[in-house]
């Protein structure tokens, strides 16, 4: 692998010129779409003193909600990553009848209004629902109206993130590397662990990060299946909406901001991890 020695240089030459206008557009667009709305959030929360801020965030119920949100999003992202990887693998590697159909199914969670997803999932997983009754009778497992229900909803909505990020990388994957490893005497397991997986891992991490971020912020589908009990199954977005409905705009903003910062730090961490993995496996 050849390493590019590149100095930090704003003037770069390309076949198609236009660095300045595209960068300008990028900055304007990002400001309008992301930065201005988010900075409003920051300014609004600046109306509170530090003590008031700590009062809102330190509240036991708020902390419990943070725990519920982060743990369920983490669990869902992990499960989605595992199965999403397998699904992407099957879709890319093997030809079989009905493949196009399966492939199209993956995107449905994107298209469906999340509230509809939540209602449908709650109907199926409730104690008298099709799956809910089965799980209850065989495993004594309650899904709807417990934190487990939140995980189910998040798995549903985050499926496309992993499949769609891993799929193109698998498609581009160079078969000859596998063949070379195999002809040099590597077992199938070794080929997968040493060759395939390290190459897919950064994409998988991206998928994981996207699912996780989506899961933390998810409201529509979760509130229908969560049961929304304080300290048990109340997620952060619901707490924000509850605060708003009590006309507590400052409190809502503070929680939103904290959630944003926490998510941002986590995503940053995942991005750094990704860079590190890429460097180690020689993709950079």
């Amino acid at each position: 692998m050849q390493k590019h020695q590149q100095k930090l240089n704003m003037r770069q030459s390309h076949v198609i010129q236009g660095f300045a206008p595209t960068l300008g557009l990028t900055i304007v667009y990002l400001s309008l779409v992301v930065l201005i709305p988010l900075s409003t959030l920051v300014f609004k929360s600046l109306q509170l003193t530090w003590d008031e801020y700590l009062n809102v965030i330190g509240n036991a119920r708020v902390i419990a909600s943070f725990r519920v949100s982060f743990l369920t999003a983490l669990a869902a992202a992990t499960i989605t990553s595992f199965f999403g990887f397998i699904i992407a693998w099957v879709l890319v590697r093997y030809p079989f009848p009905g493949k196009r159909f399966l492939d199209a199914l993956i995107d449905l969670p994107f298209a469906l209004p999340t509230a509809v997803a939540g209602i449908v999932l709650a109907t199926i997983y409730q104690p008298s629902g099709v799956l809910g009754q089965f799980l209850q009778d065989t495993f004594d497992l309650k899904v709807a109206y417990t934190p487990l229900g939140i995980v189910v909803a998040l798995i549903f909505i985050s499926l496309p993130f992993v499949v769609r990020t891993v799929e193109p990388v698998l498609q581009e994957f160079d078969f000859t590397m596998e063949e070379a490893a195999s002809s040099l005497g590597a077992s199938r397991w070794q080929v997968f662990v040493k060759i395939v997986f390290p190459n897919i891992f950064p994409a998988l991490l991206t998928g994981f990060a996207l699912s996780f971020a989506r899961g933390i912020g998810e409201y529509g589908s979760v509130i229908f299946i969560a049961g929304n009990l304080p300290y048990v199954s109340e997620v952060i977005p619901l707490l924000i909406v509850t605060k708003l409905e009590q006309y507590d705009y400052a409190g809502a903003t503070v929680i939103a901001l904290t959630m944003l910062v926490a998510s941002f730090l986590l995503l940053l961490l995942i991005n750094l991890l990704q860079m590190w993995v890429r460097k180690r496996s020689g993709q950079l």
Binding site: A122, Q126, P127, S128, G227, N228, L229, L238, E245
Partner: peptide, 20 residues
Amino acid sequence: VPVLDSGARGATTTFIQRGI
């Protein structure tokens, strides 16, 4: 109370349609 809906209609649905 096993479920806390956010509005009265939601609670009615939970009781009637979901059978909870």
